[in-house]
Design a protein around this nucleic acid. Structure first.
Length: 454
RNA sequence: GUGGUUGUAGCUCAGUUGGUUAGAGCACUGGAUUGUGGUUCCAGGGGUCGUGGGUUCAAAUCCCAUCAUCCACCCCA
């Protein structure tokens, strides 16, 4: 038992049933992405470490899976460097590739590399696995799929509107109750600026982010601990205690941070977006949430996060606007905005709420029971004709006991079974059994094809 | 990286204050039913009790270590 084979921590195998359900999610998402004019691309599982490093903050660098160089890489490392025992420095010497951490950064790399083939604004979607060397727990895996939609090369807030509509459509179709939380990095920057702690923006947002978890008092305490002045914390209070509709909240914020140019810009952007949104009937609730920070440090405008209402799990979708992601790769002034659906968490939510429709698991339509060589010879051509008519059909590969073959068909949820013995051959017919109702009938090959083709 | 939880049959779990041969349900195999599955009945196979050490006349049970697992924090899809 100890030597049973296993897979790495945080990874999973997927059975046929699980695959059918996962594909149901992927198909839904794809269909909606395409309806909004997005086109697919794919990028390699591994990227150069130079592309990946430094894009996700210090924490992110630690979570990157690195790939050892091929060949005798250790011989190229000097004795001094080995003695130093510095993992970071040594990594640079023995590894130059890593598994992708998300799809956004590889996308930025793709855009820069292919800029001359792309006509902007470029709208793409990408559904591929990503890897993070995180410690696994509920809803957190080391290998998981992201479904990204981004548009790059346009600053219009119409793009933000479309993303919210896509979120709405996807979760509506999958039947998941969600709430979309929206914030704007510029507002957060404005807050930091207003209270005179502009360079502390990260500490401040991280603290604010914890508001609904640890409460107002502890947030204030954390801010003071981080070195923010009492005066600044006092100034922050009205913002931490916002209430009312999204529009009212924006008014309250503006009253406090209106003096900041960035902050004012952020408020205006949000007003425009909510104005756009007010023109549509959305089933998903949309809420302005100032405590939404999101760790990734490349966001510069709107930030989004989607939570499932009926299940306790991390966010199932997130994203935002980044004004200069391609700048790091030498292509400045290109703004993009995008979101990422976490397919695995969506799967977990749907499993828990039992939202998968039965049709999500499709199987063989008809199985030919195998009685022996003569019967095989009679069945094979008919089987081929069924397949030519696009009917999913198969024959049991050996003349096993009938009971065994029937059990096998039942387990596989095959809809029909065809039985052919001496009697049927003599008459030139076949016995067709409906596995659900149990009904049987004697039919000719032509009738069989007609019935199953429907 | 920090804190905690749990490791017993393929799966989900019982197993009393340490005490004879470690149990159940589901799953599996065979039979009732030699051309009929999903229901029912009968029978059967399957366990180094995560691993290594220690205490004891005696350890699944107590102690230590180790590995694995899940959960929370951090962070995040």
């Amino acid at each position: 038992m100890a030597q049973k084979p296993s897979i790495p921590k945080g990874t999973r195998d997927f059975s046929p049933v699980e695959m059918a359900r996962r594909n149901y999610i992927f198909d839904t998402v794809k269909e909606i992405f395409q309806r909004y004019g997005f086109q697919p691309i794919e990028t390699p599982a591994m990227e150069n470490l130079s592309t990946l490093m430094g894009k996700y903050g210090e924490e992110g660098d630690k979570l990157l899976f690195k790939i050892l160089n091929s060949g005798d890489f250790i011989s190229k490392v000097s004795e001094d460097e080995l003695q130093e025992r510095n993992s970071v420095r040594l990594t640079n010497k023995i590894s130059e590739k890593g598994l992708r951490y998300d799809l956004t950064v590889p996308f930025a790399r793709y855009v820069v590399q292919h800029r001359n083939e792309i006509s902007f604004p470029f709208k793409r979607y990408q559904i591929q696995p990503v890897w993070r060397a995180d410690r696994p727990q509920k809803g957190r895996y080391r290998e998981f799929y992201q479904c990204d939609v981004d548009m790059i090369g346009s600053t219009s807030l119409l793009n933000e509107l479309e993303l919210v509509q896509i979120i709405n459509d996807v979760f509506n179709q999958l039947n998941i109750n969600t709430v979309v939380k929206i914030n704007n990095r510029k507002i957060l920057a404005g807050i930091a600026e207003t209270i005179g702690e502009a360079d502390r923006i990260i500490d401040i947002t991280v603290a604010i982010d914890k508001l609904d978890k640890i409460g107002l008092e502890k947030v204030n305490q954390e801010l003071l601990d981080k070195g923010v002045s009492q005066e600044a914390v006092d100034k922050l209070q009205p913002i931490l205690q916002l209430s009312g509709s999204n529009a009212e909240k924006l008014d309250q914020i503006e009253a406090v941070i209106g003096g900041s140019t960035v902050g004012k810009k952020g408020v205006e952007e949000m007003r425009t977006l909510f104005a756009y949104l007010s023109g549509f009937e959305l089933t998903t609730e949309v809420e302005l949430d100032l405590t939404l920070a999101r760790g990734l440090n490349y966001y510069t405008g709107a930030i989004f996060e989607v939570k499932a209402k009926d299940v306790q799990i991390g966010s199932i979708c997130g994203g935002g606007r980044y004004d200069d992601l391609t700048g790091i790769f030498g292509m400045p002034d290109v703004s993009g905005v995008g979101i990422s659906f976490g397919a695995d968490r969506i799967y977990d939510v749907m499993t828990q709420l039992e939202l998968f429709p039965d049709e999500a698991v499709a199987s063989t339509k008809v199985l030919f029971v195998n009685f022996g060589e003569k019967e095989e010879a009679y069945c094979l051509p008919i089987l081929a004709r069924l397949r030519a008519n696009k009917v999913n059909a198969e024959i049991y590969p050996e003349a096993a006991k009938m009971k065994k073959q029937m059990t096998w068909a039942d387990r596989k949820q095959v809809a029909f079974v065809v039985m052919v013995g001496e009697e049927e051959i003599k008459q030139g017919k076949l016995t067709l059994k409906n596995m659900k109702s149990g009904d049987q009938q004697l039919v000719s090959p032509e009738e069989l094809i007609k019935i199953l083709s429907e």
